[in-house]
Design a protein around this nucleic acid. Structure first.
Length: 110
DNA sequence: CCGTTGACGCCAT
DNA sequence: TATGGCGCCAACG
């Protein structure tokens, strides 16, 4: 496995995040086996613009904040997409975050 | 080649 | 509880 399958795995996991659910950078990093590299997950997301079917808006930080909203077409794009999926947002934070959280590990356990 | 910069998160104080 | 420090490591100038 190439060391840069890291990015591929990030995309693969994000692609599996169900509509109306969210996950976090750290959770993704941990599920790949690099729990300390959550920043790299964010970096991968930055490059996910060209990738098809990668719902980057469903990835938030560990507190449920939409820290990546600045990197979308408009600063409201991320929030709009989530609301569209039924995810409530308030003050740039996902409401009911713990309940909507989707753990990537559940995908591995299957 | 080297210093800086992050869509983060844990740990120490 | 609230800050601040630092590990992480590819990308960029």
């Amino acid at each position: 496995m190439d060391k840069f399958d890291f990015y591929k795995q990030v995309y693969a996991i994000v692609r599996e995040v169900p509509c109306g659910r969210v996950t976090s950078y750290g959770a993704i990093a941990k599920s790949i086996g690099m729990p300390k590299s959550s920043r790299m997950v964010g970096y991968a997301m930055n490059a996910s613009h060209d990738m098809p079917d990668v719902p980057a808006h469903r990835v938030v930080n560990r507190n449920g904040f939409l820290t990546g909203r600045m990197h979308f077409a408009t600063s409201d794009q991320m929030e709009e997409l989530l609301i569209k999926e039924g995810v409530l947002i308030n003050e740039n934070q996902v409401q009911n975050f713990e309940e909507l959280f989707w753990d990537p590990f559940s995908l591995i356990k299957e």
